[in-house]
């Protein structure tokens, strides 16, 4: 758990970057993952996560002690992302056939059950790319809600705090996001686990 008192102290010390790093290490990986799923691009994801941490570092004197640092940090990141989209362009709606910008190193890691069979690897890489492209094609509010819930396991309540909207809105965004994903990924939907209802 984050020691916010120590972080508050660190904020005002000279040469405090190492202390800051140590204290927010719990969240950096998660923040980067969310940024990657939102942007679909490793360079943009790194930039977004770094910028969010930089702002958190600089704005820490305005963090309310006793509230969730994680929620605060992800709120900074999501606001930053939305600002960036507003500033640099409209939401992108890419075709599923369009390639997305991923680096080779990144694609190689998209194999939950690696078997060594090149054909299967290629198929699974392709599927991961299709899923990421489908995520990219969602309206940004749906994408953020789905990523925060389905990929990072935040609760609806936490997401409502991060995205600064009601729980009902979170519920609706997740549901609409999934329905759009289902439509876009229709040929692959049952390649996941077959499940029983209830």
């Amino acid at each position: 758990m984050l020691n916010t008192q120590a972080l508050a102290g660190a904020r005002y010390r000279e040469s405090n970057i190492d202390a800051f790093e140590e204290l927010v290490r719990t969240y950096d990986h998660k923040l980067y993952r969310v940024a990657l799923r939102l942007t679909g691009n490793t360079d943009e994801a790194k930039d977004l996560a770094q910028e969010a941490l930089l702002r958190a570092y600089r704005a820490f004197d305005r963090f309310k002690m006793g509230t969730s640092f994680e929620k605060w940090l992800f709120r900074i990141a999501s606001n930053l992302y939305i600002d960036k989209l507003r500033k640099y362009g409209k939401y992108r709606f890419e075709s599923l056939d369009e390639p997305i910008a991923t680096k080779d190193g990144y694609v190689e890691k998209t194999l939950p059950d690696w078997t060594g069979n090149p054909e299967e690897i290629a198929q699974q890489n392709e599927l991961a790319d299709k899923i990421q492209a489908a995520l990219q094609s969602l309206p940004v509010n749906y994408r953020m809600a789905v990523v925060l819930y389905d990929l990072e396991g935040f609760s609806y309540e936490e997401i409502s705090g991060i995205l600064e909207c009601s729980i009902g809105t979170v519920r609706s965004r997740i549901h609409r996001g999934r329905r759009l994903l289902r439509k876009k990924l229709a040929p692959y939907v049952y390649q996941g686990t077959e499940v029983e209802v209830g």
Partner: peptide, 8 residues
């Protein structure tokens, strides 16, 4: 299906 994405 989303669970098939990796954790970079």
């Amino acid at each position: 299906l989303l669970g098939m994405l990796d954790t970079p």
